[in-house]
Every structure is written in C-alpha cells, then in structure tokens.
Design a protein around this nucleic acid. Sequence first.
DNA 1: CGGACGGATTGAAACAATTCAACCCGAGGC
DNA 2: GCCTCGGGTTGAATTGTTTCAATCCGTCCG
Lengths: 336, 336
Amino acid sequence: MAGIKDVARQAGVSVGTVSNVINRPEAVLPDTRARVLAAIEELGYVRSESARQLRAGRSRIMALLVLDMGNPFFVDIARGAERAAREAGLGVMVCNSGQSQEEEAEYLGLFAEQRVCGVLVTPADATGGNLEAFARHRIPYVLVDRVAAGTETCAVSVDDVRGGMLAVGHLVSAGHRTVAFVSGPGDLHQIRDRRQGALAALAGAGLGPEALVEIPSDRLDVAAGRDAGARLLGLVPRPTAVFCANDLLALGVLQSLYAAGVRVPQDVAIVGYDDIEFAAAAAVPLTSVRQPAMVMGRMAAELLLEEADDEDGTHRHRSVVLQPELVVRASSAAPR
Amino acid sequence: MAGIKDVARQAGVSVGTVSNVINRPEAVLPDTRARVLAAIEELGYVRSESARQLRAGRSRIMALLVLDMGNPFFVDIARGAERAAREAGLGVMVCNSGQSQEEEAEYLGLFAEQRVCGVLVTPADATGGNLEAFARHRIPYVLVDRVAAGTETCAVSVDDVRGGMLAVGHLVSAGHRTVAFVSGPGDLHQIRDRRQGALAALAGAGLGPEALVEIPSDRLDVAAGRDAGARLLGLVPRPTAVFCANDLLALGVLQSLYAAGVRVPQDVAIVGYDDIEFAAAAAVPLTSVRQPAMVMGRMAAELLLEEADDEDGTHRHRSVVLQPELVVRASSAAPR
DNA sequence: CGGACGGATTGAAACAATTCAACCCGAGGC
DNA sequence: GCCTCGGGTTGAATTGTTTCAATCCGTCCG
C-alpha cells in the first residue's frame, strides 16, 4: 500500500510538503498542490490513521459503551452521540456491555489500548470499580443515564425519581389505589430511583408503600415482561394498574394481558418508561415516560469533546440532569 | 503516559524483553517476567494499539456498515458479527449508512484510513460504485443481506424470493385472493426479490399479478407503516391480506388497522418480514418470515476473517444463501 | 580444556505519519 | 551590491511497538 513517501517521490516533492497538502493546503503553492493531489489520486494513497494517532498520542474515535443495544433507548442515545461526534470529525465505536461487569472491564481495557479520545459509558458496575480503575489512564469519560457520584466526572442523566413520580402520579390521579411495579435488576440505579419516585407519588396521595406491589424481574426485555405479566395475572387482588421499569417490559406485560383476555386499559392500565418508538407503535399505544435519549447522547458527546479538547485546564466537570416527560396514550385510564 | 521504554527501564531490561513478556510470556524467564509485570503494574502501562497497528499494517477492528440501526434486524446482525469477531480477538465498529450513498462512501473512506482488517456491509448504493471504489484499497469485505454480483467477493444473504413466496403462499392457501404489498425503497434488492416471490406464490395459485396490490413506501419504519395502513384502509375493495416488506412496516399497519377498528386477523390478515423480537411481542403477535439475522452476522464475520487471515491465496470467495422460515402467529388467518 | 549448542536477552531497524528548525530564493530597502 | 524579510520547501527527529539478527553466557560433550 502506498505511503506518503511514495507520493512524495511520485510528485517530486518532500514528505513534509505532501503532509502540508493534506493538512494545510493553503500553505502550498497551487501547482505544487496540484501535482501532489495528482500523485495521491494516481497511487490511490490513503493516509494511515494509525500513524497519525501514534504521533498525536490519541485516536479520533469516541467510544460508547451501553447496557443493551437491543433496547431502542440505547440506540437513540447512540444516534445522538454519533451525530455530535461526526460533526467534530470523530468516529464512534459502539459497544455492548450487556450489563456484565466483566464485559465492561474488558471493553474499557480495549478502549485504553485504542487510546480513544474519550468514553461515554452507562455503567454496568454499580460499585464504580471498573471506572475507578479506568480513570488511571487519564482518558476522559462521561457517565450517561447515571448521576455522577462526585464532582470528578461529567454526567448526563434524566431525573428518574421524577419520572417514576410522573408515571405513578398519573395512575393515582386516575383513581388507581394499587399499582404493580415491574422492576429490573435491583442494583441498577435507574430502577431504584424510579421506584422511589413511584413511592413518593403514592405518598402524595396518602397511600403507603404497600400500595406498590413489586413484581421483580432480573432482565429488562420483552420476554421478562411477558413473564412478569403472567405473574401479575396470578395476583389476588389484581392491581388495576402496572408501572413498568421500561417499555420492553411493558410491551411484554401488555402482550400477556391481551392474550389472557384482560382488557387494556379497561381492566388494567399500563405505563411504561423510555418512550421508545415501539411504545407508540403498539396496538394499544403505551403511555410512557419519555426520556430525551438522543439529546442525552448528544449532550454527553459534547461534554466529552469539551473535556477532551481542554488543553489549559479550564474544563469543569458538570452533571446535566434532563427532565422526563409523561406521554399519555391509550394504555392508561381510570379503573373500571 | 508510560511507554514500553519506561517499563523496560523500570524493570532493568530491554524493550524487546518487555515485548516478549506481553506477547510470548513463555519465552521469558519467570523472574524476569515477574519483574516486568511488576513494572507494568506500577506504571499503569497499557500498550498502544496504534503503534502495534502501524507495525502490523492493519488494525484489529472489523467494520460493520448497516442500513438502519433503528431496525432490530440489523441489531441482531451486529450481535452475531460482534460475537464472532470477539472470539477472534477483534473489535467491531458498527456504523449506520441510513441508506444514504454519501454516508456509505464517507464511512468506507474512514474504514480505509483506519486500515480496518475488513468490512461487513449491507450496501446502500445499488450501483455498487462505492464498493468498487473501495476495492482499490484491497481491504477484504463481505456483503451482508445481499447476493454477490460476481465471484469477486463473499456474501451472505437470505433467499428473499423464497421468503416472499412463503409469506404470500401462506396467505393464498388460507384463501385470500387479493394481497396488498407494502413495499419499500424500489432500488433495494431485497424488496424486489420479496415482490417477485410474492408474485410467484400468486401465480402458483392461478392468480395474476393484479392480485398483488402494491402500496409503495419510501422508508422501512413504523411511521411509514402507519401511513401505508391509512392508504390500505382507503382501498376499495379492501384486500383481505397484507404482506409487508418488513416487520416495522407491519407493526405500523397493524396499529393503523387497530385504531380504525379493523380486526386482525378476522378482517385483514398481516404478514411481516424479519421476525424481529417486537413482531412476536405485538398485542396481536405477527406472522412473519424469520431471517436468521444473528447467524447471518456470524457467518459474514467468519467469512471475512477467513479472507483476512488468508496469507497464501487459498481463499475462494463464497456466497452463502440462508433459508428463511415462516413463523405463523395470530395475525394471519382465513378471510372472513 | 576448547568448542558447540541453545535458551535468554539485547538493541537497532522498520512502520507511516506530523512537526519544526533550517534552508532557499526572490523581492524590496538602503 | 548587500541585507533583510518572508513565503515555500526540505528532511531529520519523533512517536511506541514488533521483529530479528546478534550477543551473551552457562552447560554439555568430546
């Protein structure tokens, strides 16, 4: 494969001039430039990113490590981040930790080797140990969908307590007195916050924590939702409303109920979380708490870029908390 | 950041020995090794992937360029490819062309600069011009979800003609005499093949091409499906069955029909394509043509690895054609 | 006791770019 | 005619790793 030296020889100039043509074309005389460009074209020269990186000390790639690429919520985050990154001329490497600490650690190691210019990460490791170890490498990172523990890192999140409050507040004000909560892995921060918000909403209506019937689940996908739906059907008395920790669970629950002939929302109301495209696309469109996923991805990428470009230490870590929004659709209504 | 030289100095050995500790530990005396490992640990040394790449001539990253990351079908392909790549110790860079030729060209250029070890691509450019230009760089690539035009490249695809035939054959044998076909961008190979299969199935039942009522659509997402559903409702006489070019369209159609009070499958039967998770998760579970997406991603990655590792020219390009499978669910049944 | 063998280690070359001090040379000023 | 100025160009140094021929040294054999 042709290198910069071959181009220089072909064009009858030095390697420095070729480099200038590529990186600062205005600093080269037009006809020299033309000769070099012709040589580049003729040889099919493509500059080697690894050589540039080696010199620059870091790559022009931003890493994004999410919990589950099968969840459209994270796909939207990726979209937002990718757009911001591309505007800055960077590529994005999207990876999937699958909520596994080991995978997370492995990927973070990979990123360090790649000398990525920064990492956007939705931590799978609740203890923060992986990230603490990663911090040694002095590669900037931004937490996504997670509040920062201290002030030593940037973070973008959505107010999950408020989200839970909106969801259950809506159900309570529609007259429901018992709400099932289909949760997820207990160590996920997001889940705990949503539960807390739900309890707060109940308390606001004079209801105690016993009004929230938890249906635990160890995953956050449709299959787990179906399973949770089956368990919901077995409850006596059956709650008249369900709040699901995300839309995938909600879709699964909806399907279980529908299959059992339970009408939504007449018999049971459902509220989901995330407002993924498929929530609105369900046969009974789902009421859901919308998270501005694309905005979150974009903001996280922008914070990261700011930190990565910070030469003179002016950067101050920031935590951005976005507000969720309740989108009411057909799946929720007053009980019977 | 500490480099291999710093480690060597710290451990009192030469750089070559450090390299050996990392890459061929068995070739180093245990106590030398221990000293080096201690130095690595102490300095927090992480080897620079760019420097390795520079030396090796290519990176340890495989690129995957898909049409739409918002479509779970492609997410599944990515999953399959990622798994195979990781088994071989490679990273995967997943990118989204969004069916745009320009984006595709831009990404291919990026891949060439990165010297990725290979590219898996679902072409957006039907003319093949982008890939033809890319072939100059002598970076191996494999076509995904697309048959190879000639024998100069590997490809993994699913028999779309047969898929269309299965879908419409099923509807016809259930007694339907007119089938609407919600299509997609006309220049996509996949769509043309599915239509052809649909027509073949009709012909097999003694029905002419007029039995297939095409409802064109320029995108392949849920919103386009909703729109197509609205147009379907306006048709007189209304077809009793719809075959959608993919599941996202089908979900949109299903929603439109449901909202208009048209019962599925009693009034209109629906068959989708891809069998994404959300097809089975719909309130009325969708009959769909299952494509083995993860298998496709995995096989494509394996073909690519074989080609990339091929030192001695033994590699022969292959086209793998997988078979689709009809999954019958509640959304299809005999007319009235 | 000398030479051969072989495992462990060394250190320099190579990889492909960017950067920068030095150089060249024509124009303009004195 | 000499000096200075400055735009254009040069080419060596630099980046961090891998690789490999060369070296070192202890052991075994004759």
